[in-house]
């Protein structure tokens, strides 16, 4: 059942050690910093984290990695100029990396939420990221079999929720939010604003409330938090 929760700490309290956690965001845009900070404070550890990146700078996901809470990263682009916490753990052999082409990452997440058991895609064919995977010649090209990525929990950020849990995002901060919301067993969303049921135009809703379990309001505009 949909719950409106007062604090980010209560929102993430149920996340257990060893969970697979999807975290929305592409770089800092759409990254739910307050929920990640709360997850760090909760002490949950041995996590598998699904995100496009592996944290940047000294905030959000980067801190979760720094503190040794992440056992494995599933992502497309871990190495950045400011991914020093990931780099250090990776070089020390203290974090496992599953590197996935970005579109395959997105489609594998989408597949999980859509109940698809796997799919063939041309992306990655003939490269080291497809080694050991089943291939078939389909629709005029060689394609690689990819499997869905499920998660216990998704932490995402949206702009506005209504009381039914319907979500609207802001600009390119939408990125992984809608597909992660569908792929996780339990989806926790931080929003800037909660509006009454009926205040959002049904034609413009991006994520229907059926995919959402917990909503917590975090003050400040998403752009301010992401800057």
């Amino acid at each position: 059942m949909l719950q409106f929760i007062d604090t980010v700490g209560e929102a993430v309290a149920g996340i257990r050690d060893g969970s697979t956690v999807m975290i929305g965001g592409f770089g800092n845009a759409g990254q739910p910093f307050e929920l990640i900070d709360a997850l760090l404070d909760s002490g949950a550890t041995d996590l598998t984290v699904v995100n496009n990146n592996a944290g940047q700078g000294d905030q959000g996901l980067a801190l979760l990695i720094k503190e040794g809470r992440v056992r494995k990263m599933i992502c497309s682009f871990p190495r950045q100029s400011d991914s020093w916490h990931f780099d250090e753990k990776y070089r020390a052999g203290k974090i496992e990396l599953e590197l996935v082409p970005q579109g395959n990452l997105a489609e594998r997440i989408r597949a999980a939420g859509a109940g698809i058991g796997g799919f063939f895609t041309p992306t990655g064919y003939g490269t080291m990221l497809a080694e050991g995977k089943e291939t078939r010649f389909l629709d005029g090209k060689w394609q690689v079999f990819e499997t869905p990525i499920h998660a216990d929990v998704a932490l995402i950020k949206a702009l506005t929720a209504d009381r039914k849990g319907n979500l609207v995002y802001r600009k390119t901060a939408r990125n992984f939010g809608p597909i992660m919301a569908a792929a996780a067993k339990h989806t926790i969303v931080q929003v800037s604003e909660i509006v009454p049921t009926g205040a959002l135009d049904p034609e413009n809703i991006v994520t229907p409330g059926i995919y959402v379990n917990s909503i917590v309001r975090v003050a400040g505009t998403p752009a301010e938090r992401a800057a």
Binding site: S76, D87, Q102, G103, N104, T123, M128
Partner: peptide
Amino acid sequence: DLANWHTGAPDAIPAVGGAMDLATG
């Protein structure tokens, strides 16, 4: 054939992003 994402150096941390998707699509 295109090579643009990884030098293959043993100490390099691999990062692919959308390169393979763009090349293929």
